[in-house]
Amino acid sequence: MPSTRITKTQEMVYEMKVGEVMTRQVITVRPDVPMSRLRGILRQNRISGLPVLDGQRLVGLISLEDFIKWLADRAEDGPIRQRMTQHLEKVSEDDPLVLAVGKFDKSGLGRLPVVDRNDPTKLLGILTKGDVIEGLLKKLEIDYQQEQIRRHRTAHVFFEDVQADRTALVLQYDVKGQDFGQAGASSSRLKQTLHRLGVGPNLVRRVAIASFEAEMNLVVFTSGGTLRAKIQPETLLLEAADSGPGIADIACALEPGYSTAPDWVRELGFGAGMGLPNIRKSCDRFEIDSALGKGTRLTASFFVNENFHDIS
């Protein structure tokens, strides 16, 4: 989203220091070099300006603009010293980028010398607008990659990096029967939790569909039961269990559109006989066991790895 990117960049302009983005390998020129040689120096190094050093001391800045001005003035050749900018805006290595950005704006200059805070004539590097932009872009990219890695890791923690002979994270939800007002709330909580654990969106969606249908069945047909999601390194198991009344004919119940739901349930948009078929369609392995008067246990398995890399 563009808005968060801008905020992020603004934040970075405050956080990042000049030293992180400046160029340390600086091409410099001595003040006694004649103006006529400047063009060659700039061209050769593909730069549009450079600091002027007298021995080790920074004495000014000379740029292509100064050169053009010199040409336009048709002045005689002379040392760079005579045409360079002497009153310099400078920055220190530990200044935040925002300060440099302000100085670029105020001075209209294309580059700022970076000097030692205690000795303003000691040149440490040069900072151009290009350096600032490039530095920000790199940082954004690094942040983005780290974010990706972090998200990847979270998923890994639960699905691949777990080191044990047997590992499982179990999320259990108690579903009340006949309480239509709350129906679906457990699946909603399960879905949010899976998201936070970093499970890929495609897998989350499939689990959510199955869980929602299973929860509806518990609410509509039973006096209550439990919904459990068992997260293992390779598989996510969704289990719905209740203690009655049981399904008389499982083959029929699996037939799309077969329904024993009362009309009031249908009028609420459910009971169209798509529950079990939907669950079966969304998972990788489907098992159901039911005994009349005893209850039903449904297990839907989702294989993690195939869906694992769709984190996006």
């Binding site: 239509f180 007002g181 679906g184 709330a185 909603s188 569909i209 929602f212 948009g269 459910f270």
Partner: peptide, 10 residues
């Protein structure tokens, strides 16, 4: 409300 929950699921 189930309509909302359903939409949330998918």
């Amino acid at each position: 409300v189930h309509v909302i929950r359903t939409c949330e699921m998918v």
